[in-house]
Simulated scan of single mutants.
Amino acid sequence: MTTDLDRATVEEAYARWAPIYDVVFGAVFEPGRKAALRAAERIGGRILEFGVGTGVALPNYKRSDRLVGVDISEPMLRKARERVEKEALTHVEGLCLMDGAHMGFADNSFDVVMAQFVITVVPHPEETLDEMARVLKPGGEIILVNHLGAEDGPRAVFERWFARRARKLGWRPEFQFARLHNWAVQNGSVDLPIKRDVALGMYTLVRFRKRTQAEIAAMSESVALAG
Rank of each mutant, 00 (worst) to 15 (best):
L136D: 09
E82I: 06
D107E: 09
I194P: 00
E82L: 13
L77G: 15
A224V: 04
K79Q: 15
L192P: 04
Y14T: 03
K137R: 08
V206I: 13
A115I: 03
G53Y: 09
T54F: 12
G51E: 00
R66D: 00
R46F: 06
A27D: 15
W161R: 01
N108A: 15
G139K: 04
A101R: 06
T120E: 10
A163S: 13
T2Q: 11
L89P: 09
E49P: 00
R7K: 13
T120D: 04
I119K: 03
I20H: 14
V121E: 07
P173K: 07
R196Y: 02
A15G: 15
Y14L: 01
R46W: 02
I43F: 05
G201F: 04
E30G: 05
W17R: 13
L205D: 06
Q176V: 10
A106V: 07
H102Q: 11
S109F: 05
P75Y: 13
M98H: 10
P193S: 07
A57V: 15
G140V: 04
P125V: 11
H147S: 12
V206G: 04
E174S: 13
I143Y: 05
L5N: 03
G153C: 04
V223Q: 10
G53T: 12
V68C: 03
P125L: 14
R33C: 01
R165F: 14
A156Y: 13
N108M: 12
